[in-house]
Design a protein around this nucleic acid. Structure first.
Length: 272
DNA sequence: ATGGTGGCACCGCCA
């Protein structure tokens, strides 16, 4: 069975419904994981999304900030929304893809929006950075304790707001003290990855000396020409899924669409 | 070296 999944920080789901439609039309993914929906659940554009063919939704939104959602053509079960750091922020939703094909065990999808962390990379001085590190610590212990569930086949996607490797940013040297690429965050993220042996599929598919970005600031005069990007969005799979043939692809074109998000969608396609 | 843009909701906050 072929499955395709897109993760995308959409930066307002209501404002960018036309772009969501364009994306779904162009790539026809089975599952779409959104971050920064910026939309309370009561105002979520469910009927418009259903018209695109996504009858199953797991949404965790709030007014104005954050917000995540899983849109799916495949039925979703065991929907779970965890609040990290007791903040009540809408930064996580997970669900099982209830695959109908015979002998197909479910695949659990985790969709995360990790705190950006503010500007100053010092937890003593900047509570937002402390929150980011605390959030990552809690992710790690949650997965270590297996409180996230016992399913072997798992996908973790989302805006993790960290670009871990040298060529995940346009200038390793210039960004070493910039939040999203500091060594302390990268170490925290690596601990989360190790908690379940998650495989960083995007980087697996692109050589470590090649640049790979998913985000370009709105503040650049010409984002594409300057190309000062960062790889903030990720596709991780559990070891049980990593053996299946798969591909990941950054839909860079979408960054240049009309009134775009500052993040490009990332496509993950595999056969199981 | 600085400030640049964007979304939401409120008259600033967050990214």
């Amino acid at each position: 069975m072929k499955i395709s999944l897109i993760t995308w920080n959409i930066n307002s789901v209501r404002l960018r419904m036309p772009l969501l439609e364009q994306l779904a039309g162009a790539l026809d993914p089975d599952v779409i994981c959104l971050q920064e929906t910026k939309c309370p659940d009561g105002k979520f554009p469910s009927s418009a999304i259903r018209k695109l063919g996504y009858d199953h939704m797991a949404i965790n939104g709030q007014s104005g900030y954050h917000g995540v959602a899983i849109l799916s053509r495949i039925p979703l079960t065991n929907i779970d929304k965890k609040s990290f750091c007791d903040m009540g922020d809408s930064r996580h939703v997970s669900a099982d893809l209830a695959l109908s094909a015979p002998a197909q065990s479910p695949i659990r999808v985790h969709n995360f929006y990790v705190p950006a962390g503010g500007d100053v990379p010092d937890p003593a001085e900047n509570p937002k950075f402390a929150h980011k590190l605390g959030f990552l610590n809690e992710m790690e212990s949650w997965f270590l304790d297996k409180k996230a569930g016992h399913i072997d086949r798992m996908v973790l996607v989302g805006d993790l707001n960290i670009a871990p490797f040298e060529h995940d940013v346009w200038s390793h040297k210039q960004l070493l003290k910039v939040v999203s690429h500091t060594p302390v965050e990268v170490e925290h993220l690596e601990k989360v990855r190790l908690s379940r042996g998650w495989v960083d599929l995007m980087r697996d598919h692109v050589a470590h000396d090649e640049k790979l970005y998913t985000w370009w600031s709105y503040r650049a005069r010409d984002w594409s020409a300057a190309d000062k990007g960062r790889r903030l969005d990720h596709v991780w799979v559990s070891p049980a899924l990593s053996d299946f043939a798969g591909e990941t692809r950054v839909i860079r074109d979408a960054r240049g669409w009309e009134r775009p998000s500052d993040h490009a969608p990332v496509l993950y396609r595999f056969e199981t």
